[in-house]
């Protein structure tokens, strides 16, 4: 991870060799980031990725419920209960018309116009153009995180410089 040149955002280039590994990483990462603000997930196939993440989300929910049932420690039980509520209450959508009510919007790069800005986290799961990246970054809160799956394209540096 690094910061952009003038330290407005954190930039995290995350390796994920397969789509399965990428969705695993995203499903692990997303709950903590959603606990501090909404997220935008840029993907070529919003409905498909949303469905995959939702399945992983339900598995995570089940695992935390199991952990909660196994502990007698009241503080841990409270913490698990809080997380279970958080996971239940998180609203995902791939429909732009519902973006304003969603905690996580799954959209194509072209679909970020109707969004609930500012986002605390933007995940790029596909290669986009520098112009599209610049448009996305206008929706990223200062101190927020841009997580990029795959490689950081040198053309992206131009988009960051143009915003500076």
């Amino acid at each position: 991870m690094k910061t952009d040149l003038i330290s407005r955002w954190y930039i995290d280039v995350r390796s994920a060799k397969t789509s399965d590994l990428m969705s695993f990483d995203l499903a692990q990462h997303l709950p903590r980031r959603l606990s501090i603000g909404p997220a935008l997930v840029i993907t070529d196939h919003p409905a498909i990725l949303l469905s995959v993440i939702r399945k992983r989300w339900m598995k995570l929910l089940h695992d935390i419920e199991t952990q909660r049932s196994r502990t007698l420690d009241r503080r841990k039980r409270d913490s698990f209960a809080k997380e279970i509520a958080h996971l239940h209450e998180s609203r995902f959508t791939s429909k732009e018309r519902l973006a304003y009510n969603a905690d996580a919007l799954f959209a194509t790069a072209a679909g970020v116009k109707a969004c609930r800005a500012p986002y605390t986290t933007i995940y790029l799961t596909t290669t986009i153009t520098p112009v599209e990246l610049a448009a996305c970054l206008t929706h990223l809160r200062q101190g927020g995180l841009l997580a990029v799956y795959g490689e950081w394209h040198t053309a992206y540096d131009g988009a960051l410089a143009a915003l500076g």
Partner: peptide, 26 residues
């Protein structure tokens, strides 16, 4: 989050080690 200063390393909240920023995620 407040505007942040450039940092080169960070403490991991899981293993508590201080590691280069390139090795961590937010």
């Amino acid at each position: 989050p407040p505007p942040h200063q450039p940092i080169a390393e960070a403490q991991c909240v899981i293993c508590l080690q201080t590691v280069p920023l390139v090795s961590v995620t937010a």
